[in-house]
Design a protein around this nucleic acid. Structure first.
Lengths: 133, 133
DNA sequence: CCTTGACCCTCCCCTTACTGGAACCCCCAT
DNA sequence: ATGGGGGTTCCAGTAAGGGGAGGGTCAAGG
């Protein structure tokens, strides 16, 4: 069960570069073989899998670091995990709201734009701040 | 009508640092006074206002550069503007979808988590990849 | 036994769109 | 002269890696 970085990459879906980066910033600490190759144990694999999923769910690296610590702490309180998650959920909601507002404005402008060879363009007018009503 | 960077900042809502950056990357070209202060003309103000709005709607700097060129080109085709906008709209939609998927997964896990002093946590189980069904 | 191709290593710069800070100049009022 | 509030440049840093150079290692085939 001694895996090289390539094996771990395949199993976790993380790129080798990303795994090296995670070691750089201290998220995993694989052993080293005599030839300097990284040697990943099962625990490293678990951690990297965890990281891969947490990142895919939009958690920041910093959140991941904290979640990983909780993951490894048998005496954790689930409240701590839930708090990180709730904060993240709120940020996701805020982003969705922002994006929806942008989308509404832009799709409105876009609908009014002829999109032909002529220069007249409500989108540009909207951006330039003209009050074309 | 000769404005300093601070005046322009107030009128556009952009920070002075941002305006200097926009000059750095060639989006605006204010004149210079004898004391090296930037001197903004009305056209600079228009451009910066345009940039401010375009950025607020989520366009990248690169998009902004192209939009600005179209804005200044009296012989533009509105189709070109609309195409940039449509591409951007699609990206916004993709992001919204991603975020909504994350939100669904996370809020589901979060709901199942007691959030108390005990260590058991469906969120961590979900992240670690346990198939707790 | 040697070579070839697939791995692996470190190191450094690049990305986006700025932000912060240091160190310095300019102008006006007190 | 001094204080405060402008302005200037340049350097460094952010998040989360990506790209590529330059070089070592390993296993298999000729």
């Amino acid at each position: 069960m001694n895996l090289n970085i390539g094996d771990v990459s395949k199993r976790t879906g993380l790129r080798a570069k990303t795994i090296r980066y995670y070691e750089d910033i201290g998220l995993v600490k694989p052993l080293r073989d005599t030839n300097d190759y990284r040697v990943f144990r099962e625990i490293d694999l678990h951690k990297l899998t965890f990281l891969s999923r947490a990142r895919a769910l939009g958690f920041t690296i910093d959140d991941c670091r904290n979640l990983l610590a909780l993951y490894e702490d048998e005496t954790r309180a689930s409240a701590d995990v839930k708090e990180i998650t709730s904060k993240h959920l709120k940020e996701i909601e805020a982003k969705i709201n922002d994006l929806q507002a942008m989308h509404a404005t832009l799709s409105h402008l876009s609908k009014e734009c002829a999109g032909d060879h002529r220069p007249d363009c409500p989108i540009l007018e909207g951006l330039s701040g003209e009050d074309r009503r």
